[in-house]
Design a protein around this nucleic acid. Sequence first.
DNA 1: CGAATTTGACCAGCGC
DNA 2: GCGCTGGTCAAATTCG
Length: 215
Amino acid sequence: MEGAGEEESAKYCKDVKEELREEVEEAKRGTMLNMVGEGGEAKQDDDDKHKKLNKAKKKGEKRQREPRFAFMTKSEVDHLEDGYRWRKYGQKAVKNSPYPRSYYRCTTQRCPVKKRVERSYQDPSVVITTYEGQHTHVCPANVRAGSHMLADPSTMVPSIMHSDMLLHQLVHNNTNNKSSPNSGCSALLHNQLQLPDPYDLLQCFIPSFANGSQP
DNA sequence: CGAATTTGACCAGCGC
DNA sequence: GCGCTGGTCAAATTCG
């Protein structure tokens, strides 16, 4: 059984890698930094008959994918605080993983951002978070906290930042401990991804960060 | 009582 | 064409 398990885990690792790489490729191409302005408002869904089947939408064109960004975080809790308010709208068991994947949507009206949260089957202490889309509003945490937050960036560093650091930590651990296949997967992920500059990412997801916090 | 979560059902896309 | 899987919806339930 264990042999099969190894094989499966290798496959899963590869799957995740490919998915993440694809996402980062998209980001690299610049879709991520240019996606502001895609006016998706006023859809005028006058037909509320098929509200349930609304997701099907246009048949001809493929469902256009929002820019996505995935990262891994070492955390006990699935749902990381990133300053935004999220509402869970679904949970599914995923193949090749004993842990379910949760689907969250930003609770702010008209904000299209979604995120998926799943736990790594390789390393249960690692949470894989995938953001999709970009917030059309400022971070509620910033609004609540007022200007003093911007005056002192250290107080507003979202966990997205911690995530990146943790990711680096993972890699670091791996270089020190090459015998661990699990962290090897994580490190491989990061190596292959060549994640973009964390500041860019923060600017993408947290506009206020770009406005006030960066020197 | 309103907001958030849970959970089963449904549908589209994809691989075989 | 069929079955599997991921993603979403919405009613029911729980929580503050």
